[in-house]
Design a protein around this nucleic acid. Structure first.
Lengths: 248, 248
DNA sequence: CGACGATTTGAAATCAGTCAAGAGCAGTGG
DNA sequence: CCACTGCTCTTGACTGATTTCAAATCGTCG
């Protein structure tokens, strides 16, 4: 219950979905855990693992992804501070996808059994975690739509909008001006495009004056315009309960 | 608790994930519900609804889907007997996608509040339902990979393998010989291809002697071969706990 | 400076989409 | 009973978005 508990971001995130009582809050902060730093490309979980830990991301960015038989990689989602990045795999007990660090990260490892126990003891916490995974699922659906039915321009715009908005919600800064934590190759894995085409698409958006870039730094000049290009409607993120409301 | 309760398939499905005690079983079967029949194309839930019911599918097939701004439709998953087709939307309270009947169906409508209550009262039931939605999410991920990183041939083969295997698991018949409950246009919405190309892809698979068709009737001549073409590995379905084990 | 990864650009190749039209089949109504 | 209507399926020809291949440039870090 120390104010400085590294688990605080988790408490804040879960409180978005369910209003937790003092007992639940204390139980959450009292969860056993080990904080560790990891480097870019390190795996938190590998497909086929039987995870014994559940990971709370304290800083940095990670992705979920999977590799097809033909070598193609597909990223399903990007995660940031405060998100529990491995509920899916650890609750199902057998990992069906990889979870990998995009940047340098700090992670709190919580024993999976401790999660199961706290969920059994405090149904409200279970409910909050369920919500969290349901929102993940909503994001997966939107990405399927993105990859399946939007052209390269819209796909890219959509990803940028989602990322910017989630950065803002996570309190990680300006949604109009931020650092993209990924290479163009990683972008291509998220968008199911080739690296070459990612490059061209970015340049096209820049040429049209919707974004500006220098290296990984990205500035969204007109968010609404980008949202229109990307067919982006934030409702799938289920942010209703937040102070702010809809699209910023 | 009459043997003939229409909710029995749900009990069986949930029992796959968690072993439920007598109390839980009774509570489940005692859930208030109304059985209704619906016709092809009827909507169970529409995007943006605030669902007051949660639907258990008793017979027939339904799909989840969403429509992009450019008119493109993307189907995320197909559901069959025994599946609770609207936990996602009703737990999140605001539907972010459509759920629509593919064929004539029978559905049990259960008040969403009754679901919330039973979950609060019986954590084990909540856990089982959580599992169910996690497996849904695993399927969404695999479909993203399918649409994003496999070519038309593999995509089609993958979908057929998944459908055949799930039919079998649901006890709905022979996984080598069945009726496809969807038009080629609906297939195209699931695979993110054009109708024309779906047609050509099916013919190609048939020409190669992997499947045989007459109208909607489909025969898989060599499942393993089809699985190889489709890069299909059933682990993402998390069927471990079932009697049968892996790929049939 | 050298080296390696990331980005950028051009040209050629290809998979899948679009357009258009015909065939098959089932249901409807005259 | 048959013509009519409306889907669904099929096929061919053409188009086009994106990929692939190849090579140059840029930047950073030891």
């Amino acid at each position: 219950m120390s104010e400085a508990s590294p688990l605080l971001p988790m408490l804040q995130k879960l409180s978005l979905w369910v209003s937790l009582g003092l007992r639940e809050q204390q139980a959450l902060l009292a969860l056993p855990h080990t904080v560790r730093s990891m480097r870019p490309h390190d795996f938190i979980v590998r497909e086929d693992d039987r995870p014994v830990h559940c990971c709370l991301l304290l800083s940095g960015f990670v992705v979920r992804h999977k590799v097809a038989g033909n070598g193609g990689r597909q990223i399903f989602s990007i995660h940031m501070k405060g998100e529990i990045v491995d509920l899916h795999n650890s609750i199902l007990r057998r990992a069906d996808h990889h979870v990998q660090a995009l940047t340098a990260i700090d992670v709190a490892f919580i024993p999976a059994q401790a999660i199961r126990d706290i969920v059994a003891a405090y149904p409200l916490i279970g409910q909050a975690m369920w919500y969290e995974t349901l929102v993940d699922a909503a994001i997966f659906r939107e990405w399927t739509l993105n990859v399946g039915r939007r052209d390269s321009r819209a796909r890219m715009a959509h990803l940028l909008c989602e990322f910017a908005l989630r950065l803002k919600v996570a309190g990680l800064g300006d949604h109009a001006h931020f650092q993209l934590p990924m290479t163009q190759e990683q972008l291509s894995d998220a968008l199911a495009l080739s690296v070459v085409h990612v490059n061209r698409t970015l340049k096209a958006l820049e040429a049209d004056g919707v974004i500006r870039r220098s290296k990984r730094e990205l500035q969204i000049i007109d968010f609404d315009h980008l949202a229109r290009i990307g067919d982006f409607d934030s409702r799938y993120l289920h942010l209703d309960r937040l102070a702010g409301g809809q699209v910023p």
